[in-house]
């Protein structure tokens, strides 16, 4: 029996760490109890917030684990007790996790009604999907301000842009899927743009970071539906790239966080969420945190923000997803053998 327990103690951490993480970092003193955060946000964006939290709570340490939004959903669903706090930019997946009962209620956090759901899922950033261009590639040419202008620009000079257009691979990226479905819901121009990008052999990316890398070194000239915050945050690319907020209709996402239902440290986890929401609300010391803040007032369009509501689960529906994927694939992946199709 004792050997079994020992074996289990030896094997469990192995299993837990068997996962391939994009990044994995420990904050704080090793000996103290560790709170595990699973997140889709790059460590560099989150480190200042974690460090400011640890300054207040030196008695805990934090392990920060980064993975893609779709993987995050699967990993967390498989073992909800392994993680204390879940942070993701894929609002739909986060809302479904909360709807399925994976999130714990935290009643003593005051947050606007539109920025939280069931007092368990809390939004803490406001980030629009943007068009990012390599300035050099658009030299001597008008910069497109809307989706329609982008379509016209791409059509006008297909040779210049062939193989140099990038967007999310919605099959891999939960955030990419969210942006695509919300775009499709808002306007037909999304499908036309996708068709055009498909005809130009668009490159598909799992993550914003890689897309911006390729933009910076000129591999691609334009990227559609990228998080502008990632491009602006990077010093090295700031001069080469231009972030464009589509003026026809913006699609704005909110990063959300919740405390796992099965957490063993509910108090610490709730304290972290509270710290996060306060730090990210306007009026707090925003300069010291690289994450975009939660903007509390609506802009002129009024409907720009993706609402935190059960309807987010619509495109997670198996049949809806199958249909959407089929249409998206037929639009974006146009086999060179049958270019006319």
């Amino acid at each position: 029996m004792r050997y079994l327990v020992l074996l289990a103690l030896w094997v469990l951490p192995m299993l837990a760490h068997a996962q391939d993480w994009e990044d994995q970092r420990m904050f704080g003193v090793d000996s103290s109890p560790t709170m595990r955060i699973i997140s889709s946000t790059d460590t560099s964006f989150f480190a200042p917030i974690i460090e400011s939290f640890l300054a207040e709570r030196p008695d805990v340490s934090i392990e920060y684990l980064v993975t893609g939004t779709a993987d995050l959903d699967q990993i967390f669903r498989a073992s909800p007790a392994e993680f204390d706090v879940v942070i993701s930019s894929a609002m739909d997946l986060q809302l479904k996790l909360a709807n399925d009962g994976f999130a714990q209620r935290i009643d003593d956090i005051t947050h606007p009604a539109w920025a939280q759901w069931r007092q368990s899922l809390f939004a803490f950033t406001t980030e629009p999907a943007t068009i990012v261009i390599n300035k050099a590639a658009f030299a001597g040419q008008d910069v497109p301000r809307t989706r329609l202008e982008l379509i016209q620009a791409l059509r006008a000079d297909p040779d210049r842009f062939r193989g140099r257009v990038g967007t999310y691979d919605v099959r891999q990226s939960g955030l990419g899927y969210l942006f695509a479905t919300q775009d499709a819901r808002a306007s037909e121009s999304f499908w036309r743009l996708t068709e055009v990008m498909g005809s130009l052999d668009a490159r598909l990316y799992c993550c914003s970071g890689e897309m911006i890398d390729d933009l910076a070194d000129g591999t691609i000239a334009v990227a559609y539906n990228v998080l502008g915050s990632y491009a602006q945050a990077r010093q090295d690319t700031r001069d080469k790239l231009e972030v464009i907020l589509p003026s026809d209709f913006p699609t704005t996402m909110m990063r959300t966080a919740f405390v796992s239902r099965d957490t063993l440290q509910p108090q610490t986890a709730a304290d972290f969420i509270r710290h996060l929401t306060i730090a990210q609300s306007q009026g707090a010391d925003l300069a010291s945190f690289p994450l975009p803040p939660l903007i509390t007032e609506l802009d002129a369009a009024g409907r720009s923000r993706i609402a935190l509501e059960p309807a987010l689960m619509t495109y997670l529906d198996r049949l809806k997803r199958r249909t959407f994927m089929r249409e998206w694939e037929s639009a974006i992946i146009q086999s060179p053998s049958a270019p006319s199709q």
Binding site: A307, E309, P310, A311, M313, T314, D317, L319, K320, T323
Partner: peptide
């Protein structure tokens, strides 16, 4: 069978 139900189907339940 395909059920391409509208966004409003669940939105109305907010």
């Amino acid at each position: 069978v395909d059920v391409d139900f509208p966004y409003a189907s669940l939105s109305m339940l907010s």
